[in-house]
Design a protein around this nucleic acid. Structure first.
Lengths: 164, 164
DNA sequence: CGCTGTATTCAGAAATTTGTGAAGATAAGG
DNA sequence: CCTTATCTTCACAAATTTCTGAATACAGCG
């Protein structure tokens, strides 16, 4: 439980970071990106520098660099250059993070492509081809649904939090 | 493109299996389970024996055994014992496969647990705590949506294919 | 310009994962 | 029961992944 008025408890933060990262790893994310992401998510400002991350997670600058590159590619964090400084800040925007999850979109799109090729090369009239075609239809359906689901989420969020 | 009347072209099948498996791997699945799954998905009967899998994929019985155990745990395939035989058949049911994708449910549930602990230990009134709480709210929302989305899929599927 | 703080790249050490062969377990059928 | 077909488990070798330290590149500042 949080201790009021005592500021952040680094140990509690670390415990959350490691346990949440572990869940992300189990879901298929690489360890270091998962830890970096969890650390950002649980920071008060929502952003940390490379040094802060390296210090908090006890890893080398190289590891931070690699993890951040990965997360940026996945659009899960953005980079900010502090004006007039060489230091960079890595930030998690809530909505970026949602969109990224959604952007399993990109993954689904590639599955769809592979499935279409499969239907074509095995033959749409064969039993296997029909199975692939149905799977393809499922993903095409999901695709459209996800967009609408996200729209509903934003409406729902607004009810919970206001325009925030 | 399919060659009508010539039966299945093993090379075309293999090409699809490997390319679809590669996409699954990229999405985080282990290589062997991905290959086994793709092979089952693209079989005409929707089911194969261990020997058939080992032969088609050029891997040892041990590898097949491990992959199948994993897939069964994820509810992506079911095992069938052919009556009066020692051989087992591994089968992909379309709906099992959909449900399994959905059963990222289980993953989401664990994320929710970790997030709740984070909100509690960092303090719901802190900026970090609020961020975690919002993320938690997102997953809780998604959770409910997915169920309804699957219901709509079954209705949609029926329109496409009939009761089949 | 050169100095300095910061970020990236790269080769390689360490850890982890993956697949194999061989041994062991299980169950059908004589 | 004993034999045999099949599946599973396990120790280990190979391949892959992950992280580090050191070298390198970059950008701001005097």
């Amino acid at each position: 439980m949080a201790e009021p008025g005592t500021g952040r408890d680094p140990e509690a933060v670390s415990k959350f970071v490691e346990s949440f990262a572990a869940q992300l790893v189990e879901a298929g994310m690489q360890r270091m990106p998962a830890r970096v992401f969890a650390a950002l998510l649980s920071s008060d400002s929502g952003s940390l520098t490379s040094a802060e991350l390296g210090d908090q997670l006890q890893v080398s600058p190289a590891a931070v660099s690699g993890a951040v590159r990965y997360l940026a590619q996945q659009h899960m964090v953005s980079r900010e250059r502090e004006p007039g400084s060489r230091r960079e800040r890595y930030r998690v925007h809530s909505n970026q993070w949602y969109e990224a999850l959604t952007n399993r979109d990109a993954v689904i799109k590639r599955w769809e492509i592979a499935l279409r090729e499969g239907v074509d090369s095995l033959g749409a009239a064969t039993p296997a081809g029909r199975r692939l075609a149905e799977t393809l239809a499922f993903f095409e359906f999901i695709d459209g649904e996800i967009t609408r689901m996200m729209q509903r989420w934003w409406a729902h969020r607004e009810k919970l939090y206001g325009e925030g």
